[in-house]
Every structure is written in structure tokens, then in C-alpha cells.
Amino acid sequence: MEEAQRQYLEKGITVTYEYLAPEAASAEDQKERLSQVKKDDYDIIGVDVADEEIISPVLDEMADEGFRVMTFSSSDAAEGCKRIAYVGNTHNYQDGADLTEALCEKLGYRGRVAILVGSKGAPCHEDRAKGAKDTIAGYPDMEIAAVEYDMDSIENAYNLTLKILEENPGLDGIICCNMSNPVGAARAITEKGSDTVIVGMDHDREALHYLNDGVIYCLGVQDCFSIGFDTLQVAVKIADGNPPGDLYPEKMNEITTIIYQEDAESMLELLYGDIL
């Protein structure tokens, strides 16, 4: 977003934005914030939907009241929501399926796995979990031992993983559907000295280190730079009164790349300047 803002400034266009992320994902918190936002004079409101069932009606209501609302990042609102556009990951289901396929291949299509979903109702987390479940279902020798919601919290993910390992000795794999849970799972696995294979999402610094160490098998990395950059670009076009169409699509898809141990070093250097 900063880069897009900078490029606009170079052209003499000042874009002012507020980007306020909560400490932890919460649909209720988001609902409250949206009601606050309505009091201010914003040209465009972008929402990273925490729970499509709770937030989508709020967005519809805001649209009906004349607010220009768009969604971005990993979770779009529910189908039919009146938000103007979405920029971000449109293939969460596929991401979940791809990660799980990688895990199944690693396990030789035989074994018991657990799924850490993330936030209940968060479309991106739920879609990934669904993709994972459907993939597992396709292999007769694969079995889902547990499905848990960590609410996108590292601490929760850590505790849940310990619990799953305790309840499922010899667990073969864990599928992590958001940014926090691969870290929590990896911490627990390391602590227990387990050889359970972890696959997960996103590019948390600690997760990348676990990837490099071989604790995490692979990570699905979303193109966050493009998501931010394109979100601001689309937001400006919406603020100018342009509807989706030739200037921007109603859904702008950003890619996800699955990276493995050999990619960890370069990713760490690229994102965090870490040289191992």
C-alpha cells in the first residue's frame, strides 16, 4: 500500500489511508470498528472479512447507506454481498487443497492428519480447511484425526497441537490454514520432538525459519505486496466513482506460491533480510 501511495504522490495525487489491524481476528471487533468508521468521512472503506456470515450483512447495510465498501486480503464477503470489489486471494479452497496434496504426497498417501483451521467463519480459513478435507477424502488411506479452530492465534495453535499430539500419538501430519497456526504447531512439534509433517500458510518469519530447519514441510505464500498495492489502486478508482469493469475487475485475484525448505533462505532474505 505504501508503494502505491508513494507512486501516487509522485504523480501529485495524495492518497490518505488508515490501516488498522486488530490484535486478534474477531468478527465482533470488526463489526464494531465498521460502525465507528461510518462516523468518519472516508471515500472508501476496505475490509479484510473476519467472518463472512457476520460481516457481509454489515457491508450490505453500509452499501445501502451510500458507503463505498470493498474487501481485500484473503477473505471476500459472502456471495451476493454488495461490496464493490475484492482484491486478494480468490483460491483459498485450492490453496488448502494444494497444501494437503503436498502433504499426502510426502506421506505416501497414507496416514492420519489434523487440521488447524484458524478463525471460525473466516472465509479464507474455512475455504482452505474445506479444500484440505476434500483432498484427504480423495485418498482412502488418509484419515483426518482432528479439526481445531485456533482463532488465528499462535498461542492457541501451540496448545491445540500439544493436545492433538497427546490424543493422537503417531499423528502423521498437520494442515495449518492461516498465518499463526504453522508457528504454533511447529513450536509444539519441536518441543515434543515429533516427526509430524506440517504444511501451512503464509510467510511469518518464525514459520520461515521452521521451514528452513525442516520442521515445516511447505508453506503457501500469498503475494502480500501485490494485494496491498492493488487494493489501494482499486480503492482510488472506486473513490473516483468508477464501477468494476474495464478499469478494474470485480474480483482481482492474487497468486499463492507453495515454497519448500530450499526456498526458505531466499524468502527470509527477501522479506526480512535474514541470512542463514
Partner: peptide
């Protein structure tokens, strides 16, 4: 940990 710049306000703790 909210950051205030000339044009932006964002959460910067992480």
C-alpha cells in the same frame, strides 16, 4: 503502536 504519518494511519506493532 498505531503509526501516524502525513497521509497514513496504520497498525505497526508487527
Amino acid at each position: 503502536n498505531t503509526v501516524y504519518t502525513q497521509y497514513t494511519t496504520y497498525s505497526g506493532g508487527s
